[in-house]
Amino acid sequence: MSSSRVYGYLRASTDEQDAERAKSPLLDFAAQQGFTVDAWFKENESGASLKRPELFRLLDVARTGDILLVEQVDRLSRLNSSDWERLQGLIKSKGVRVVALDLPTSHQLLHTGDEFTNRMLSAINGMMLDMLAAIARKDYEDRKRRQRQGINKAKENGRYKGRPVDEKLHATIKELLQEGKSYNKIIERHGCSRATIARVAKTLRNPE
């Protein structure tokens, strides 16, 4: 891969999920292919949103020919078509090559050839990437639809109670807020979301 750098991108959708889980299979793949991962970028953000600061930080430092390595295409995108076009356009403009473990055609991009071969591989990989991104979006929409159907059915039967509250975490956040700790410090210490802290803060301002 000459002087190209490889950046591993790890993403999980929620704070409760472990983004680090994919690191091991990516390291195994790198070892099999004979290269090392130069840096890791990890975040807990929805793949259906462009609110991905670590992904954009990766693309900001990447240079032409560098590799963006992911376990699966859906770690990169569950975006709608317009947002995917924006992200894909940025990736192309930077000249970054996307390699995903679940996209075998992309593995060949790790090994450079002549210009014609490289262009052909990039074109084929681009089409396959588009297809898998579309499938990932459909899977996301299908799951959301099933969740809504399940919630509506539970409501009709009087069984819907919403997501259970982590009382222990809320109590800890409450104590830290009362001690004057910042949102960022609490997030760093406990890995919770800003929205969760805001809900606890609201109960402090408006106790029942």
Rank of each mutant, 00 (worst) to 15 (best):
D38M: 09
A39S: 15
F41V: 01
K42D: 10
E45A: 03
S46D: 08
S46L: 13
S49G: 05
L50T: 07
L50M: 14
L50Y: 03
K51P: 01
L55A: 12
L55C: 11
V61P: 00
V61N: 03
A62I: 07
R63T: 03
T64S: 07
G65Y: 02
I67E: 04
L68G: 03
L69F: 14
L69V: 07
E71L: 13
E71C: 08
V73P: 08
R75T: 12
R75Y: 07
S77L: 07
R78E: 11
R78D: 12
R78W: 05
L79T: 09
L79M: 12
N80T: 04
D83K: 10
D83L: 04
D83Q: 12
W84E: 00
E85N: 15
L87R: 12
L90G: 07
L90P: 03
I91Q: 10
K92P: 07
S93Y: 02
K94S: 05
V96C: 04
R97N: 11
R97Q: 12
L101W: 13
T105D: 14
T105K: 00
S106E: 08
Q108P: 00
Q108T: 08
L109G: 04
L109I: 09
H111M: 03
H111A: 10
G113V: 10
M120P: 02
L121F: 03
N125D: 07
M127E: 00
L129K: 09
L129Q: 06
L132K: 05
A134L: 13
I135A: 09
I135Y: 00
